[in-house]
Amino acid sequence: MNDSLLSSWVEWTPALLDGLWTSLQLTGGSLAIGIPGGLLLALLMSGRSRVVKAVAIVLVEIGRGMPALVVLQLVYFGLPSAGLTFGPFLAATAALALTTAAYTSEILRAGLQAVPAGEVEAAAALGMSHRDSLRYVVIPQGVRVAIPALLGFSIQIFQATSLTFTIAVPELLGQAYSIGAATFRYLDVLVLAGLVYLAVVLPAGSITRLLERRMGRHL
């Protein structure tokens, strides 16, 4: 360890924090679109129509089966040939949102299924519509059950944003690579980038575990 490393780190930090901000925005965007998408898929999968169910299952299997990196490249390089062009940030958000929807649909489906059948029957016996029963009884409780797992998944998506440097999104890893390319000190800058990832992921992990313990109330 020497002064030159420390002073370089200090020098690189603003650029990396810029990158972190982009990573967090990507994470937020993917979750904001992907989790409602996952809920929709979960509801479709547990719905009554066989065709709808089959379509939802196929979408989920594709989304989970294809590596996030492949989805990303397909959206960014593939869609323009179909006449749809996105900037890197939008393409990255769309691709990660797809992956999020596919994975969280399973998490949310398990949450919805954890709601006791007796409560659904009670809602039906009270004359509540299927829709109201979902909206007021099943979804609020199912989502609550799923929150710890969703947080765990959010941490993974945050890590997966690093894949988007391959389509030139200036997120944390992308910024680190730019610095590496300019200074040829890849190792030094990657260590710092790794520390920044850890500084986000470790506290987020403990918050997740804390919530997990506190979630049991009223359920």
Binding site: G118, E119, A122, A125, Q141
Partner: peptide, 9 residues
């Protein structure tokens, strides 16, 4: 019902 089935949330 036998099991009450109140909405716990």
């Amino acid at each position: 019902f036998q099991s009450f089935n109140l909405f716990p949330h």
